[in-house]
């Protein structure tokens, strides 16, 4: 399919713009920090995103296997799942890829180097990734609830254990 070739050709640009789009969902005072600070320990969110976006794209434009894509999406979504985003806000960046790619490929589309149908197919793939992202998001939120319970238990585990022992006797 012709579009894949073009997508790979623009991989750097797509990756860059997709990352920008993600970064721009944060307060503007922070966007610069997330984008510019290159030390992964001084800028964990930005650098995690930057690395993950590249990996996601490679898999998505390459073999696009769900089992490989999910852990990569997890890297981004796990962060966004605990920031004050609604689920739709947290995952909006996935769908943003459609418009972004359409803009990048505008010229090639106009010149007929690929067909509109190709683009539609690509958009379908993005939507599938969106669904996958939904699964990932839900898993992250579930694990948040699980760890709450685990923590509450272990905070008083010895007491509970002891209490049961006494009842058992």
């Amino acid at each position: 399919m012709a579009i894949e070739h073009h997508l790979k050709k623009h991989r750097e640009e797509i990756s860059q713009k997709w990352f920008d789009l993600l970064a721009c969902t944060y307060p503007q005072q922070t966007v610069r920090l997330f984008k510019k600070e290159s030390d992964p320990f001084a800028n964990p969110v930005g650098q995690t995103f930057k690395a993950a976006i590249g990996e996601i794209l490679d898999e998505f434009l390459g073999e696009n296997r769900a089992e490989a894509l999910a852990p990569l999406l997890d890297k981004v979504i796990r962060v966004r799942a605990v920031q004050s985003f609604s689920p739709s806000e947290a995952l909006g960046f996935i769908f943003g890829l459609k418009k972004l790619v359409e803009e990048i490929l505008e010229e090639e589309l106009a010149e007929g180097e690929m067909e509109m149908g190709d683009l539609r197919e690509f958009e379908g793939k993005v939507e599938a990734m969106g669904l996958l992202a939904f699964d990932v998001y839900t898993r992250c939120r579930e694990s948040l609830f699980e760890i709450k319970i685990t923590e509450m238990k272990s905070n008083t585990r010895r007491l509970l254990e002891r209490a049961q022992l006494i009842i058992g006797e």
């Binding site: 789009l21 721009c24 969902t25 944060y26 307060p27 503007q28 005072q29 004050s84 985003f85 739709s88 806000e89 909006g92 960046f93 769908f95 943003g96 459609k98 418009k99």
Partner: peptide, 27 residues
């Protein structure tokens, strides 16, 4: 909302910090 709206929704308005009230929500 359209996806394109969602993407940009979270960017804070250009308000001075004094004019940005604290919003409490679960969590």
């Amino acid at each position: 909302p359209k996806p394109s709206e969602l993407e940009l929704q979270h960017v804070l308005p250009k308000t001075d910090w004094m004019d940005t009230p604290a919003v409490f929500r679960p969590g």
